[in-house]
């Protein structure tokens, strides 16, 4: 758990942490691949955490599995990606960032995601509708002793 120290004292900044996978080669580039759980699905996913992505994105396979979890359409948008232009509706979906064992708690986010029928990449966790709703810090684990890790937490207000 990270603690914020300021003039007012110490306050918890994050509630959970997890390692991330980084496989910077090929088609699905997991620069920061984090474990997450979408909606009520039983399994877990490795999703690409991308602070530069405007919206989070799920493809048709995942959307089909999550049909009962996805909220009503909130309008259609298009988004430019490294794989070209993708289009689709924005829909609400609960996403849990999963903490590693002994590293605190998961964090659940009522996210808004772009459901793109022509998206063949991994689940993307972007800024609008997801990252903007939680605290997140990235430690690339560049030193010899540190592990690559993301720290995440909810706001307490």
């Amino acid at each position: 758990m990270l603690v914020l120290q300021d003039a007012g004292g110490h306050t918890p900044w994050s509630q959970g942490a997890a390692g991330f996978i980084s496989a910077p080669h090929g088609n699905h580039r997991y620069f920061i691949g984090v474990r997450c759980q979408l909606g009520s699905q039983l399994n877990e996913e490795i999703a690409q955490l991308d602070t530069a992505a405007e919206w989070s994105v799920i493809g048709p396979d995942v959307a089909e599995e999550l049909e009962d979890d996805l909220g009503d359409e909130l309008g259609h948008i298009q988004m430019r990606t490294s794989r070209g232009l993708i289009v689709g509706p924005l829909r609400r979906l609960r996403i849990a960032l999963l903490a590693d064992e002994g590293m605190g708690n998961n964090v659940d986010v009522e996210a808004t995601v772009l459901v793109a029928a022509d998206w063949a990449g991994p689940v993307m966790l972007g800024f609008k509708g997801f990252l903007e709703r939680l605290r997140i810090g990235i430690d690339p684990g560049a030193s010899a002793v540190d592990e690559p890790r993301v720290y995440f937490g909810s706001y307490t207000d």
């Binding site: 691949g33 490795i46 999963l98 002994g102 986010v109 939680l134 937490g153």
Partner: peptide
């Protein structure tokens, strides 16, 4: 509107990314 839904603290973490990263 995006400011209204906040993240919530969920259940305790389990599992780990480390063995998955090793497998990769």
């Amino acid at each position: 509107s995006s400011a209204s839904p906040k993240a919530r603290v969920g259940t305790q973490g389990r599992g780990s990314m480390t063995p998955l990263a090793d497998w990769f």
